[in-house]
């Protein structure tokens, strides 16, 4: 369990004073400015490697956009694993988060769906099985037996759950199918691991791979997609259970109307999304089904 205080940046003297004043609503949040924080309520939003979360300039622009539209102080928190974000949501130390479908289902009782991104006009994405470009023979997971395989995150659908389910469906045991597996804790790093040849195969979010193809084509060019999963519900934007319905609605409204102003459109373009919709829990039924297969928690 990661201690909250361990994550705080050093040398931020105003921090504790402000946090005390806010009654711990957003404990440990990074503050944009001390004066703004005093004047306005503060919300924190967690980002996971469900998308290319190390585009810091983009995130900062998006954060400022949200601050302006909500008239609130907004703090973005990036974490390198789903687990950390999930823990913060569970502990109610985070108001909103963009999480993958799997954590969403795992936290089903503790979070509420805010919005689902629209990618290529659909609230859907897939898992891609990729291999290094040098491997010309492999046509899918069936050809990757006894190789070194890179998973994204143990709490990822596209980067962990789906490939194991697919192997299971082939009648093999996912525990022993590969010679060795490891987690990179990020979809982007799965692509890096496969591109570098560290792993002979990997499972990656189709949205991440395709976004990377735009941002860093040199990297994706070193990999080849050999298998595409069925479509699943896109990683959703969720609210922690204690967030007031009013705030949830304001956030949902912001997301759903982003595509209506120029700045929002520009941001969406950079995020590589078309917009957001309210979404539906049934989008995630297929994931829940797979989770049940492995007896995973939250798949009730």
């Amino acid at each position: 369990m990661v201690k909250q205080s361990d994550r705080l940046p050093i040398g931020y003297p105003e921090r504790r004073r402000v946090l005390a004043g806010l009654g711990g609503l957003a404990l440990g949040a990074m503050l944009p400015t001390a004066t703004a924080a005093k004047a306005r309520p503060l919300i924190s939003i967690g980002f996971t490697p469900a998308f290319v979360h190390d585009q810091y300039a983009l995130l900062e622009d998006w954060r400022r956009y949200m601050e302006r539209r909500l008239d609130m102080a907004v703090v973005f928190k990036q974490h390198d694993s789903y687990r950390e974000t999930m823990d913060l949501l569970r502990l109610r130390k985070m108001d909103f988060a963009w999480v993958s479908d799997y954590p969403f289902l795992a936290l089903k009782d503790r979070v509420r769906l805010v919005a689902v991104p629209l990618y290529k006009g659909q609230p859907l994405y897939r898992s891609y099985i990729i291999v290094p470009i040098g491997n010309r023979q492999a046509a899918g997971l069936k050809d990757l037996k006894n190789t070194v395989f890179a998973y994204a995150d143990p709490l990822s659908n596209s980067g962990y759950l789906y490939p194991r389910f697919a192997i299971h469906t082939m009648g093999a045991n996912p525990q022993t199918y590969f010679r060795k597996t490891f987690f990179t804790w990020s979809h982007k790093k799965v692509v890096e691991a496969v591109a570098l040849g560290l792993a002979q195969g990997g499972a990656v979010d189709s949205y991440v791979w395709e976004s990377l193809e735009r941002i860093d084509p040199e990297l994706t060019r070193l990999t080849r997609i050999v298998q595409r999963s069925p479509e699943y519900g896109f990683p959703p934007f969720v609210a922690q259970r204690d967030v007031s319905p009013a705030l949830l609605l304001r956030m949902r409204d912001l997301l759903l109307t982003m595509h209506q102003d120029a700045e929002g459109i520009a941001l969406l373009k950079r995020i590589n999304l078309d917009g957001f919709i309210k979404g539906d829990l049934h989008l995630y039924d297929a994931v829940a089904e797979m989770m049940r297969t492995f007896g995973e928690a939250g798949a009730s």
């Binding site: 490891f182 987690f183 790093k189 691991a193």
Partner: peptide, 8 residues
């Protein structure tokens, strides 16, 4: 912890 990626 067999965390290959971080080691890498």
């Amino acid at each position: 912890h067999d965390d290959i990626w971080h080691a890498f």
